[in-house]
Nucleic acid binder design. Structure first.
Lengths: 197, 197, 197, 197
DNA sequence: TATGAATGAGAATTCATTCAT
DNA sequence: CATGAATGAATTCTCATTCAT
């Protein structure tokens, strides 16, 4: 039963998520304090601990949530499409996602290639899931002869993911005024060309 | 004969730089403590503060040093070359650099697209310098007709820089066993293709 | 019923004030550590920082609090009295205050005539407030013909304040066994005489 | 034999003394760093330790030097005078001294009534010496019937010393533009009156 | 006689976490 | 379900002192 209390709790968690993503995107995990998060979410500090076991687990849930969402979009994007259009759809989905959740994307870009952090394992797993969708598509492309037979599927997939991330975030951070279509076009052009090999 | 003391001091600073890059690359700036840095450099904690005004300014000098070096390599790489080969030389120089200073590259990837950090301004300036070299080359390519006339030079240059960085670091972190030549080839292939438009 | 928490916090601040005054009176501001203050107040070190922004601002609030109290006593002492008795009442009030808050008086004596400290500005303002009450009384005495017409009101007022402070503290520190009445008598005698000019 | 080296050392010590007095007068002993002192004296930090055993002993020597000088002036002032003029001469000598060595006077005012400091003992002894000269004069006045027979010689002497110090320093700090003669007059007036009892 | 790089103990400050309300 | 005062371990930074040159 969805009573008022339960709804309120969900709201609070959502607000905390949003506050945390923004702050961590801007400053990084360590530089963001629980006080900061509570303040931006407009709740008391104790409330953070009422809703999450620790700062780290808040962050891990955040990663899970954010990357889970991305993976879903990837799956939805490729559903039923042949390799070539599927690849283009993935690029579009990624940009769409980054545009919608820019702070999370920024955060991901900054944390993805770190080593030696507590949540490294979690992150690796989640990354594998998201890139997995790309890899399936690429493999299908190879199998269908749309992509070069000797293509390293793993390398190509992570490169594709990384390139999309860095180009999109760079655009958001350094040239936010340019229309997203430009970026999309540029990226699709690159992908198309590479795919033609 | 140069003063022994001055030499000693330069040595110490160098050791601190090296220790700091490695640690910050792995864990990030905030998660790296001054104690860690001192310990890895094999000096006392006070020595860090004798040589740098603060942890932040140590990091800023580090950025300055590292990006300065990269900019030099970029300049050396393009010196006297026509646009097309110059572009390829830049890609090679960047990979060369990342291979040689992998920790610094990793650190850069993590900090480059953050906002709201104390050294943001410094970083932006340095970034502009390094990408400036790329931009000059791209512009020359456009002027020479080697690159599409309507290419957005700024966007293309940052994208090129970012792509190189993310692909190379991804390779270093996730597939360190693959030969660097593969990565270099893949990148050059992309660049070549885009350039052919 | 008032919030128990708020009361607790006020208590803590009060305890910290008291601990700080004593320690700073004995050793001076710089020689007193935040650890000392917390220990004497019976709280954890973090509590000091939960209640005050910094050691300096704790001290500033302390000055404000202590001198504010003194100013109040001065005002209460002169209320409704004609100049001559008012002057005597001020001397008595100052001694009363110093006897009651000896540590604060000692601290004031040590800090009042320093220059170049962070809280100098605050101190000057507060000093002006307290001495202002004396000055009003002196001026009234001059206007009423009870004091010499050419008396420098400012100089006389600060001198009066300073003399009371130094004589009383000297007594507290070096001859604490002598009854306060002696000191009071001696001071009043001086003031009376000077006033007779 | 006064060769160049010895003279240089004396110079250095003198410069360090002066630098230290000024800084400690402004900020207090603990807040003044050895670095500060060396910098203001225009020598390297090591030089401080070449000339003095420690920061504390530099300060103790300073106290000894400064109060010794004051005691000498007191002795010279009263030499051969009968009680009443001797007392006036002491007041003049003190003001003279404070005008000449204002920083030292300020320092003394701030440290004189502290308790619990390392050099407390030294300070007490030196204080007793200086005030001793005043006490001798007061006693002579009492014996000669110039001062009330029941006067507490100790209390009166320290009060006299303290009053002179605080009034003069207050003038130096808060009204440095007023001519010293005003202050001298005011003080002498007080003393004269009290002496008339 | 003087220097200044290096030290490390200690001081100020921060912050994730707990817990009584 | 939420709060915010309190905590103390960890962190940044300071500074008197040492010592090789």
């Amino acid at each position: 039963m969805t009573d008022g209390r339960a709804r309120r709790r969900v709201d609070t968690r959502q607000r905390l998520f949003e506050a945390a993503v923004e702050l961590i995107a801007e400053q990084g995990f360590s530089a963001t304090t629980v006080d900061d998060i509570a303040a931006r979410a407009g709740v008391a500090k104790g409330t953070v601990y009422y809703n999450f076991a620790s700062k780290t687990s808040l962050f891990e849930e955040l990663l899970r949530h954010g990357i889970g969402l991305l993976t879903e979009q990837f799956r939805a994007a490729v559903a039923g499409l042949p390799p070539r259009p599927a690849l283009a759809a993935l690029v579009r989905a990624q940009l769409e996602y980054i545009r919608r959740y820019r702070a999370f994307a920024q955060l991901l870009l900054s944390e993805m290639w770190r080593t030696n952090r507590e949540w490294q394992q979690t992150l690796r797993l989640l990354r594998a899931e998201a890139i997995g969708v790309i890899a399936e598509t690429v493999r299908a492309g190879v199998d269908a002869g749309d992509l070069p037979a000797d293509l390293d599927v793993q390398l190509a997939s992570s490169a594709l993911f990384g390139v999309g991330l860095v180009v999109a975030v760079d655009w958001l951070v350094f040239q936010p005024d340019r229309p997203v279509e430009d970026v999309q076009e540029a990226l699709l052009a690159i992908v198309r060309r590479v795919a033609h090999t």
